[in-house]
Design a protein around this nucleic acid. Structure first.
Lengths: 244, 244
DNA sequence: CGAGCGATTGATCGCCATCAAAGTGGGTGG
DNA sequence: CCACCCACTTTGATGGCGATCAATCGCTCG
């Protein structure tokens, strides 16, 4: 993998914006060779967002698609009275823009400083038409997101507060992204999002999330190094709890 | 549409099993011409299931994919202690088998008498490889299912019992399938599933579903002709309720 | 050092679950 | 044809989990 990464970078001319892309092989671009990638890239642009800033709002015309190269986002939807549900936390390498609708169904906001590759949807669709492998890749991504969404459906429909929090921690660990540092310390996870975001993802209130984390700590299943850093002490019991 | 249907049927040799398929144009096969369809079909088989019978269990090796041609199914998952969550109700024309995993994540069972076209996954994948339009169609289906799943996430995470039931009725109406009869009576819907199934889809208990339906009836938003047949009396207020 | 925001902890409330019982309808056998 | 049965649904009474209201803690930044 290390080898492939170096090799792929070498294929690209110096100064090509994708040379340094940290998620090049992870993301949809990973299946394109350098010549294709150059053509692809010319139709795009790099955009940055500070924490709290929005990439697009629900209801916006879905005129672009994005590839997240750095940082963490949240995908959320508001009910008329202000209730909020978060449908997911895109991480580096994730693709935004799988929809058949004209408008975005969810708002995408940065949680940490974020960098995205932006492409016009029309141009992107045209590019996909001529690259079957890219279409295949999109299908694979959609299938994975569908599986994740249905997992969240089970969590929200039938799990208790304690089970939801346990499931969430393990899910974050499975992604194994230590936001910011990029390191992968075994048995540790960093929570890039606030308690409010966690609550809105799990269908709970912030006080309940806090209480359940404290309970997990008291039961010696986890340890809270800082508010944002969690160490797994007894992963097996955590997994049992998460599965109900 | 009527014309196209007749024309398409005429292209097929007599006795071809797809001639009479009621969802031919709706389903994935709709994009294939007759020659392709014949090759495709030879790799498949027709299977039938009575209400309550299973098409596949969660955990089963996903050795086949299916196209539902008649009837209604439920996609469900059990937690170890018996809690059940239903992730969706496949209707005629729906495709089953979007997954990148080796095993099915959900159990698929018939709610009404059901008929499915079954294909070996390996053969199906091979067929998809040589038919980009089919791949495109699969991506479209996956995108729609993802949107539906995320809508359910919002419902389960943030809506009240009354809002969930109202949303559910409107969602069924949007599909506009009167199970069994195939008729589309405006302002009526037929519920092919039991109260238990509705409850397990909405993350509620059966008593709560029953109470909320009674409350909607008392508020004159709906009328219950039979337990399985619902008439919309005030759709606008129902929609307001459903959106929170 | 104080202001301010996010997180935690405590006290109480309310929605939906649970427990319980009665109503309804469809199928079967006498 | 009717009586019974059984499963499903509805309605009623009570309870508990997580929400809400409220206070304090603790960290960051000015």
């Amino acid at each position: 993998m290390e080898m492939r990464s170096i090799h792929a970078a070498a294929e690209l001319e110096a100064g090509h914006p994708c040379v340094d892309c940290p998620v090049r092989l992870l993301a949809i671009c990973g299946i394109l060779n350098s010549e294709e990638l150059r053509k692809f890239k010319t139709s795009g642009a790099t955009v940055k967002r500070a924490p709290g800033e929005t990439v697009f709002f629900e209801g916006d015309v879905a005129s672009h698609v994005y590839n997240l190269t750095a940082g963490v986002l949240r995908l959320s939807k508001l009910l008329p009275d202000g209730r909020r549900q978060i449908a997911g936390f895109p991480f580096p390498g994730d693709f935004l823009g799988i929809t058949m609708e004209d408008e975005h169904a969810f708002t995408a906001e940065a949680i940490t400083p974020a960098t995205l590759c932006q492409f016009s949807r029309a141009r992107f669709d045209g590019f996909v038409d001529t690259h079957p492998l890219l279409e295949r890749r999109l299908y694979t991504i959609a299938a994975h997101e569908l599986a994740a969404a249905r997992q969240q459906v089970v969590l929200l429909g039938r799990k208790t507060a304690a089970e939801r929090v346990a499931s969430f921690l393990l899910m974050l660990d499975a992604r194994r992204i230590s936001s910011g540092s990029g390191e992968k310390l075994d048995g540790f996870i960093t929570l890039p999002m606030s308690r409010v975001d966690i609550a809105d993802y799990l269908g709970l209130r912030i006080e309940t999330v806090s209480r359940e984390l404290s309970a997990l700590k008291a039961s010696r299943l986890i340890r809270l190094t800082t508010t944002q850093t969690i160490r797994f002490v007894d992963r097996e019991r955590l997994e049992q709890l998460a599965e109900g």
